[in-house]
Amino acid sequence: MRTTGIKPPAPDTRRVWPPWGRDLLLAGAVAAGGVGAVLAFTDVNSPLRGPFMLFFLLASPAAAIGAALHGLEPASRLVVALAGAFAVNLLVAQAMLAAHRWSPSGGVAAVAALSLLMFLPVLVQRLRSRTARRRAS
């Protein structure tokens, strides 16, 4: 019996998303989060206010944490980002309740500010690496 060795697996040609699908999904998530923030700040009595605001409160810190964890596998990054988003929301709610300053629009503003603060170091690092690559070439 003769063995020829182990053959490498054939490349996987299946695509889960079409080329434009990921961008469309991201644009929809940003739009839904923006609608949730606007509905929270304008104090509109709409049945969509609660779900969109909840989406913003979960997606905003999760996106900021997920951007910082670019070295992890996608599934691990998703789990850690969602757990971090829950932690950020719970800490904001606890701090606002302890200070007797709870309001839905205040909670959205605090979570948005914390998400922005978590995303800024990632943005600065990406801009620095882009500038370094331009200088090198």
Rank of each mutant, 00 (worst) to 15 (best):
T3K: 00
T4E: 06
I6L: 12
K7E: 10
P9I: 01
D12L: 09
R14T: 08
R15Q: 13
V16I: 15
W17S: 12
P18Q: 14
P18G: 13
P19A: 12
W20S: 14
W20D: 11
W20G: 11
R22N: 13
R22M: 13
D23T: 10
D23Q: 12
L26R: 07
A27Y: 07
A29M: 05
A29H: 06
A29S: 03
V30T: 09
V30G: 05
A32T: 03
V35L: 08
V35E: 02
A37H: 10
V38F: 06
L39C: 00
A40T: 00
D43Q: 11
D43I: 06
V44R: 05
N45Y: 08
N45W: 09
N45P: 05
S46R: 07
P47T: 08
P47H: 14
P51L: 15
F52D: 04
M53G: 03
L54C: 03
F55H: 02
F55S: 00
F56Y: 15
F56Q: 13
A59D: 09
P61D: 13
P61H: 12
A62Q: 05
A62V: 04
A63V: 10
A64I: 06
A64G: 01
G66D: 11
G66N: 09
G66Y: 07
G66I: 11
A68I: 13
H70V: 10
H70F: 15
H70Y: 13
L72F: 05
L72S: 00
E73L: 00
S76M: 05
L78K: 02
V80H: 01
A81I: 07
A83W: 03
A83K: 00
F86G: 01
F86M: 03
F86R: 02
F86H: 02
A87V: 10
A87I: 02
V88G: 08
N89H: 06
V92K: 15
V92G: 13
Q94C: 10
A95V: 14
M96P: 06
A98V: 07
A99S: 09
H100P: 04
H100D: 09
H100A: 11
W102D: 04
W102K: 01
W102Y: 08
W102Q: 04
S103W: 15
S103G: 10
P104G: 12
P104V: 08
P104D: 14
V108R: 13
A110D: 12
A110F: 15
A110R: 14
A113W: 00
L114S: 05
S115G: 14
S115V: 12
S115I: 15
L116C: 04
L117F: 04
M118N: 03
F119Y: 04
L120Y: 10
L120K: 09
V122A: 03
V124P: 00
Q125H: 05
Q125C: 00
L127H: 02
R128G: 04
R130I: 06
T131F: 08
R134G: 10
A136H: 08
S137Q: 11
S137A: 11
